[in-house]
Design a protein around this nucleic acid. Sequence first.
DNA 1: GCCGTTTTCGGCCCGACTGTTTTCAGTCG
Length: 582
Amino acid sequence: MIDKKEIAQILDEIGTILEIQGDNPFKCRAYHNAARVVSSLTKDLASLIESDELKTIKGIGDALSEKIKELYKTGRLKYYEDLKKSIPKGLFDILRIQGLGPKRVKILYDKLKISTIDQLKIAAEEHKLSGLDGFGEKIEDKILEGIKSLYKNIDRHLYPKALDSANRIKSTLIKCKKVHNCEIAGSLRRRKEIIGDIDILVGSKPSDAKSIMDIFIKHPDVEKVTAKGDTKSTVILKSGINCDLRVVTDKEYPYALVYFTGSKEHNVEMRSLAKKFGLSLNEYGFSTLNGSENKKDKKLKITSKNESDIYQKLGLQYIPPELRENTGEIEFASRNALPLLINEKDIRGTFHCHTTYSDGMNSIEEMANAAKELGWEYIGIADHSKAAAYANGLSENDVIKQINEIEKLNKRFNNFRIITGTEVDILPDGSLDWNAKILERFDYVIASIHSKFSMTESEATRRTIKALKNKYVTMLGHPTGRLLLERDGYPINMNQVIDAASEYGKIIEINSHPQRLDLDWRMCKYAKEKSVKICINPDAHNIDGLYDVQYGVGVARKGWLSKTDVINTLPLKSIEKYLKLK
DNA sequence: GCCGTTTTCGGCCCGACTGTTTTCAGTCG
């Protein structure tokens, strides 16, 4: 069965083919836009088609709705297959090269019959491109550079790595007195799991822009300067990440911050909204749309001190960066109905921590002390069960020993508690790795899959749902299968799992290794819809691992979760009902 | 191809930088 992701990919490809063919740019945009809309749907596609609701979704009209139906029902689309025949497959690879868009790709193909990256590389090396319309020596060089970068996979970086690189640049910039404001913008500020490049914004006096640019391009982390202007420069960092710096005036700063935080789609929507107010919005401010030729008239005296002011002028609640993806946030903000998102400081403890009893690096006591240092009120220890041999799973005797040790430690604490849990393996048949007699002894039970990763989606889903039915299970561990960092994990039908969690009253864990793209935050959104509680767990294997809750918090914010949706923001007393505290 | 609180037709976000030009097109975000 074809899924949303595949349909979105096909719609996106159609948009790209139409671009290369030089079709109406707005038509191309309609396809790209529809691809985004489809991939971010939280509702089930089957039910949308059955109830004929597709057309009611913004961005999908008669034509696209029919095409999506055809794709869903037959797994194919004639229009797409015909289009695909008109264009060699390799052109899509070529489009991924920096500096090459649909127009130049078309020229390369029409004039030199170039349809693969290898052909392009040879042609550029032999200087065969220079003669073409709009091509010169510099573009040849740029293309060769672009091919190199592509092979280095330069445009995909994990959030923590990109954040670290960005903070290093930011900390240098803010030391400069000429820098009045400085913020990391772009997808990093929106806490995307995968980051394309780093955007940094600075507010200063216009006359200082140049010297700030110099500080930036001379930063020790900079490997290469790819573009340098008075207000914008681009570099490649030694970490392999592209980094942009924009310098604007202090007055422009709030507008620029909204603009460069994006997303692109959010900005487009904001500008459309501004038009309804008779305003034009860009990165420098508002201007009127009355078409006056007099430039003095065009300059409006609308000043905004900060981002909130800008949103307010458009009749909107402040929208936190994590929500700025044009997936309904603007409409919610217009009704003053955005959720109050969870923050890092709201976390009062976590439940998925390993110790030296299984595959952790720190003792129970060390983990507990580290949790106390973080200001938490509790920490749940959940070591592996016996089937997890690779992770040194506990024996039944170990369990008893561990429970006794925790009891002893707890006597020494005031206002802090270690809670006794387990991370029990869900076996291939969906049963649990501990028998009822053992399970009874824990305050809570996390059930997770750690084996047979080659299973199909329906198999993994069945296995998970069966485990959720078990009365001893408190929460589902790393449901998106992200545990195995170096592997892909397993496929799962998240909506069905959430439905089951809702039916059986179970909690879903999100934890936070930023590996499975947007699966987790979409899961959060659907869980919220279904009133399924979420627990943000770090799956910590040492005391440093506890900090990983911050990524979980990021995912939860992107999934629109507020404090009431996340159980580990509650004091211990209030979550007793979710556990079986003894 | 989508969309509509001036619209069922005529709009569709907008500016910086680059490299190619000699006033601008392409690309990017």
